[in-house]
Amino acid sequence: MTTETRYSRADFQSGQEVKWCPGCGDYTILASVQNFLAELDVDREKHVFVSGIGCASRFPYYMNTYGMHSIHGRAPAIATGVALANPDLTVWVITGDGDGLSIGGNHLIHALRRNVDLKILLFNNQIYGLTKGQYSPTSELGKRTKTSPAGSVDHPFNPVSLALGTEATFVARTIDMDRPHTTDMLRAAYGHKGTAFIEIYQNCNVFNDKAFQILTGRQERDANRIYLEAGKPIVFGADNEMGVTVGLDGAKIVKVAEVGMDAIAVHDPAKPNPGVAFLLSRLSHGPTGPTPIGIFRQVQRQTYGDLMMGQIEEAKERNANASISDLVSQHGTWKVE
């Protein structure tokens, strides 16, 4: 999609030297975001990028927009303050699996449940990169790292399941290498009013290379990428020969020919109940097999900011021209002559 806009990608490059390791998936995501914003044609000063700490969190320094590189795990809280202070801004949160799900897990789930108008991009590389290769809360069980020489005994989070559990209003997953799909997800997140959460599978080629090989390798990817598209049957494979059924016992991978097309689930991200989306998120943990990517859930719910501003406007109408003198006199005063 190429239309003439005021901006090119260069307008969103800050001029600071990008210092991620050569070959890092973060470069691809940065390019996707910069290109998308150029194409979007919204005033550059209206974008604010807030990040925590970690490799991914260096992101704001490379964006020629407003930005804050904040504290480990705290980006959702700080971004909430920016978004509530000025609803005209588009506030992006850049976080990683360690930042967003370990030290900052609490802020992430509360931002998601409140439905603050934030676009949260969680770069999931299943490893601590900035501290050079310790297991993260999304690393697979048994992962051998410098802090888990005998294999980690931590059961990992599935970030999409977690987000759905908070009843987040927009939950999606994409892959760093799939730039058209990443752009589609960014566009949908931008258009969503409320908290939009995108898990981006991101390859750390130094400390956790090929963690997503089954989704990115030429040989494997067609058999393992399940693109979720609203209103369409959930089928995948080189010839769409595979599909997904959803029942009381969960979502299952099936051969379409064996069950018939009518048995294949039709994807509906707008379902008010997040239950089916959750079942889909359980198809693959890790990823270790066929994995859905796309929008799991997109529903409308009033945002925290709108509700808050609504209360303020209503209070102002009821109490026009309020002064501090009035406030004090309501409290009860007396005069000394």
């Binding site: 604010v48 807030v50 804050m68 904040s70 504290i71 705290r74 809280a77 700080i78 971004a79 909430t80 303050g81 920016v82 978004a83 509530l84 202070a85 000025n86 801004l89 609490n106 802020h107 509360h110």
Partner: peptide, 17 residues
């Protein structure tokens, strides 16, 4: 806020804005 850290975090965000 959800905790003390977020209490000051949202405020810092609002200060930035």
């Amino acid at each position: 806020a959800e905790d003390e850290i977020a209490g000051v975090g949202v405020s810092l965000g609002a200060a930035f804005a």
